[in-house]
Design a protein around this nucleic acid. Structure first.
Length: 572
DNA sequence: GCCGTTTTCGGCCCGACTGTTTTCAGTCG
């Protein structure tokens, strides 16, 4: 079984964690982490690259040594260097640094002094009041450790972007209500539109930092204050989400926003360039020889290092800085580019709104077309339509269309892909549709080869225009089913099928890495909502966010085109 | 361990908060 990029990345991160506990050179540790990120962001399989004899050295942060280690992992399934480290430092120690307040240094000392290797050992030692014997540890530390272990199940969770947005907006409204506070913006991975966020990073401007912090700390949804100072504070809300507040004066807004938006690796890269130009860049501004020379806007930060503005969604140190240097930044797709939704349900299957309501809601969003894609009969729990009911719906669409001259109602279906790759509708019925969306909804347990062939076979059907939610993942609930997405993407390219980026906040499927790969391989995408109610149409923004993270431009996405051009593009 | 707008060695981003270390190390982002 070929090593996945994710498992190679995990191995490197594990090495980094253990080296950190051993007190190794911090830059060596960072090198492993950086390489892990590069491998994880790689659109192709590193294992395949190795097999094809392609060199990995030269990729960002990967030199000769780490390229060799990747080859070793791919070829042997293990890493000798990791085994050597594990012989000295128990592998379980890495997990202990996840306890807030415990970093590598303290974990190392706890292991040295008491042989603590696991969370259980740690808990036992804290209960026996052993830990306070150590210099720098007190009874209070023990209490804190026990409290954190108690909460450890609740922690570590990430929140879907839509959920985070809900918490963030309420809090921002509250913060904005204080007249002393100027701007309020959510930065961090939220601003970069990641599919999930671990915490909320909120930046506000205020002449008096303490005033803003005090107002923040009075927010009634706060369950716990973790840290507080005169310019920043960290709290946990009752919902369990952590919020970091940072206050800066207005003149530092741009510098702080850039710093607080991240990503960390992007910031490091930018500051490094600044350093080479004799500049110091921090969250307060840009400095030359101790003199402030800018920082009011993000544009000033980029300009200081000779770059054009880089959109937040691109700031992952995945090549955006080089692209900016070369004048090759993509012109990212935006919500305004979208002309229609190609995946919506109605009451006829498992939707909550009527056909007319969905059409009116689509028109209200300024769309030129909307595809009605109810489930087919195999999806019994969703009350999927058999051919008779679908025929009836097509008649209804025909009639309803007479009432709308400014939006086209596309006859469509989210047709089930059966276990053998056949479709749940006859060709004669598929032929009557304007656009056919095919999707897998059951038999997730097939092995990767069978699942891949099933999907390729479905795309063999010449009436299929779009493959919906190709991986089947549900964030926080269900992993993608085993499937070779690279082959599916290549298969879509060879057959002229478009792939869906499903905007539902729990799906966001295809994921960003594979969206980018699809683009690079010349496969067109569509961004659809899979709306099951009129409100569901508004989730388009999450799909757009992810598309932007995947460097997608308007031309890469078919539902930015008027219907006549879209129709031509999906014709096979 | 990587890497070159100080280029093959000597650097590697930068600052806030916590605790009890009275001057800073550890942790975090």
């Amino acid at each position: 079984m070929a090593e996945h990029n994710a498992s190679i990345a995990e191995t490197f991160r594990h090495v980094a964690d253990l080296l950190e506990i051993e007190g190794a050179n911090p830059f060596r540790i960072r090198a492993y982490r950086r390489a892990a990120q590069t491998v994880e962001d790689l659109p192709q399989s590193a294992a395949k690259m190795v097999a094809d004899g392609k060199t990995l050295a030269g990729l960002p942060g990967i030199g000769k040594d780490l390229a060799g280690k990747i080859t070793e992992i791919v070829n042997t399934g293990r890493l000798g260097a990791l085994a050597e480290i594990e012989a000295r430092t128990p592998t379980t120690l890495a997990a202990l640094t996840a306890v807030p307040g415990l970093g590598p240094k303290r974990v190392h000392r706890l292991h040295e002094a008491f042989g603590i290797k696991t969370l259980k050992d740690l808990e036992r030692a804290a209960r026996k009041h052993k830990i306070r014997e150590l210099r720098g540890f007190t009874a209070k530390t023990e209490e804190k450790i026990l409290a954190e272990i108690e909460r450890s199940q609740a922690r570590e969770q990430r929140f879907k972007i839509a959920t985070a947005e809900d918490f963030a907006q309420t809090l921002c409204t509250y913060l904005q209500a204080d007249p002393r506070i100027g701007r309020v913006v959510v930065a961090g991975s939220y601003r970069r539109r990641k599919e999930t966020v671990g915490d909320l990073d909120i930046l506000v401007t205020c002449a008096k930092g303490q005033a803003a912090v005090n107002h923040f700390l009075a927010y009634d949804e706060i369950a716990k204050i973790v840290a507080k100072g005169s310019t920043r504070a960290t709290v946990i809300l009752r919902s369990g989400i952590q919020v970091d507040l940072r206050v800066v004066p207005a003149k530092s807004y741009g510098a702080a926003l850039h710093y607080f938006t991240g990503s960390k690796s992007h910031n490091i890269a930018i500051r490094k360039i600044g350093q080479a130009r004799g500049l110091k860049i921090n969250e307060y501004g840009i400095f030359r020889d101790g003199t402030r020379i800018g920082g009011r806007t993000e544009e000033e930060i980029f300009a200081a290092v000779g770059l054009p503005y880089i959109e937040p969604e691109l700031r992952e140190d995945r090549g955006e800085i080089q692209a900016a240097f070369d004048g090759q930044l993509p012109k990212l797709i935006s919500l305004e580019d979208i002309r229609g939704d190609l995946h919506v349900h109605t009451k006829a299957s498992d939707g909550k709104s009527s056909l007319r309501e969905m059409v009116e809601a689509a028109r209200a969003r300024g769309y030129e077309y909307v595809a009605i894609t109810d489930h087919t009969k195999h999806a019994t729990v969703a009350r999927g339509l058999d051919e008779k009911r679908l025929a009836k719906q097509l008649d209804e669409i025909g009639k309803l269309s007479e009432d709308f001259d400014d939006i086209r109602i596309l006859k469509s279906s989210e047709v089930d892909i059966l276990a053998d790759g056949k479709l749940d509708l006859s060709d004669s019925m598929l032929k009557r549709l304007d656009v056919v969306v095919a999707a897998v909804h059951y038999k997730f347990e097939l092995d990767a080869q069978k699942q891949t062939e099933r999907m390729l076979r479905a795309m063999d059907n010449k009436y299929v225009s779009i493959l919906a939610h190709p991986s089947g993942r549900l964030l926080g609930e269900r992993e993608a089913y085993p499937v070779d997405l690279e082959r599916v993407i290549e298969g879509a390219r060879d057959r002229g099928v478009a792939l869906e980026l499903n905007s539902h906040p729990a799906r966001l499927d295809l994921d960003e890495v594979h969206c980018k790969l699809a683009k690079e391989l010349g496969v067109k995408l569509v961004i659809s909502t899979d709306a099951h109610s009129t409100f569901g149409l508004d989730t388009m923004r999450f799909g757009i966010g992810q598309a932007r993270r995947a460097w997608l431009e308007r031309k890469d996405v078919l539902n930015t085109r008027p219907w006549a051009r879209l129709k031509k593009a999906i014709a096979r």
